[in-house]
Design a protein around this nucleic acid. Structure first.
Length: 200
DNA sequence: CCTCAGATGGACT
DNA sequence: GTCCATCTGAGGC
């Protein structure tokens, strides 16, 4: 059962761990250059500012970059990393509660515009891709942003708008959702062991 | 399948 | 000057 019903503000205002778990199976939609890019979320991580040394806004830290995290749930937090890549987060909870869910992985849906995604991701049409390129198309936060055309221009954008939003997608049974430690946050002391990563 | 070096530049101190 | 919620290609198995 698929649904393209846009997620509501109420959903994003909920508890960050709830949102992280329940974003699995949802569809990201980005309409750009007359193309409708759609992929299904397969992996997420929760970042909870008040208690989480891995969160950019840990302890309420407010800088130019983290300002997005203080927006109302349902906003986008897009930041630039390693000189080359973007990471896309969904801001959660009410305004001034700096929490977000990092979207770490996505895959194709039945009606994905494969060539449009492929041109963004690899500057090639889909049928020129290798098996390896297809298998690893968007299984990482930077790859997914490239495929969906997500850049810093979308930072702070509302996810309730017309061109960039998330919709209901497919309801995934809880028993299929795996849980684990978050990736690449070795600096975060005790927080590196929190089981705040969700994936199928 | 695995590991690892190198790319690359903005944000922050 | 240092850090970084990453990715790719090359080389080995």
């Amino acid at each position: 059962m698929k649904s393209f019903e846009k997620l509501s503000r109420e959903f994003y205002l909920k508890d960050t761990l709830f949102v992280a778990k329940n974003l699995i199976g949802k569809y990201i939609v980005h309409i750009v250059d007359e193309k409708k890019l759609v992929m299904r979320i397969t992996e997420t991580e929760a970042y909870i500012g008040a208690v989480d040394k891995a969160c950019h806004a840990y302890g309420g830290k407010r800088t130019q970059r983290t300002e997005s995290l203080f927006l109302e749930g349902g906003s986008a937090y897009v930041y630039f990393i390693y000189g080359m890549y973007y990471c896309f987060n969904v801001v959660t909870e009410p305004q001034n509660v700096p929490c977000a869910v990092l979207i770490r992985g996505a895959d194709f849906i039945e009606h994905s515009d494969l060539n449009s995604l492929s041109l963004f991701r690899y500057d090639k049409v889909y049928n020129e891709l290798s098996r390896y390129q297809i298998k690893n198309f968007a299984n990482g936060p930077g790859k997914l942003c490239k495929a969906l055309g997500i850049t810093k221009a979308l930072d702070k954008e509302s996810l309730l708008g017309d061109c960039f939003y998330i919709c209901r997608g497919e309801d995934i049974s809880e028993k299929f959702i795996k849980v684990g430690k978050r990736i690449n946050i070795d600096y975060a002391e005790e927080a590196k062991d929190f089981l705040w990563r969700f994936y199928i």
